[in-house]
């Protein structure tokens, strides 16, 4: 599979989840595990252009897939505009849900560049945040949309 633009080959146990593969075999620890059960969204990544919860996929299902993780969002050390909006609007506190939240926001803005507040809330309802009350995350996504 290709991860953040680089091709990799690994042998994995059939039961290995994609998130375990990314974290344990590839050292990409920016993708977090919050629940193992596709509820919390901390493990959200982009596979072939679509956000998925990487605890829901087996690594072998992703053979040949193009994967993008949070580590692939910034370019040359410069934050992606969505990441910049999160920083600007204090859209993160402990940072644990943040990678998943940023990628879900990316997906939303890909599909709907000018979302309403309701659409933003709907788009990130699969990503739990226990720190922010979502207020500043919504503001950050609105800001990213306005800049985009």
């Amino acid at each position: 599979m290709s991860v953040n633009g680089t091709g990799y080959e690994h042998d994995v146990e059939p039961r290995t989840l994609l998130v375990q593969h990314l974290r344990d075999n590839m050292g990409l620890t920016g993708t977090h595990v919050g629940c193992d059960t596709s509820s919390c969204g901390a493990c959200t990544i982009i596979a072939n252009g679509e956000t998925v919860k990487s605890c829901t996929l087996l690594a072998v299902q992703c053979e040949g897939a193009e994967i993008k993780t949070i580590e692939g969002m910034a370019t040359n050390g410069k934050l992606h505009p969505i990441q910049e909006s999160f920083r600007e609007h204090h859209g993160l506190q402990c940072g644990f849900c943040t990678p998943g939240m940023v990628l879900s926001s990316w997906q939303l803005l890909e599909r709907n560049p000018k979302p309403s507040e309701t659409e933003i809330r709907h788009a990130i309802e699969g990503n739990f945040c226990r720190c922010t009350g979502y207020h500043n995350i919504v503001k950050a996504v609105q800001d990213a949309a306005n800049k985009g």
């Binding site: 993708t31 949070i70 999160f86 990678p99």
Partner: peptide
């Protein structure tokens, strides 16, 4: 003041215990 910890957390470079 914008938070100084945000760059690494936003880039997935935070280091939590399981990391």
């Amino acid at each position: 003041v914008k938070r100084v910890e945000d760059y690494r957390l936003l880039k997935g470079e935070g280091k939590y215990t399981d990391d």
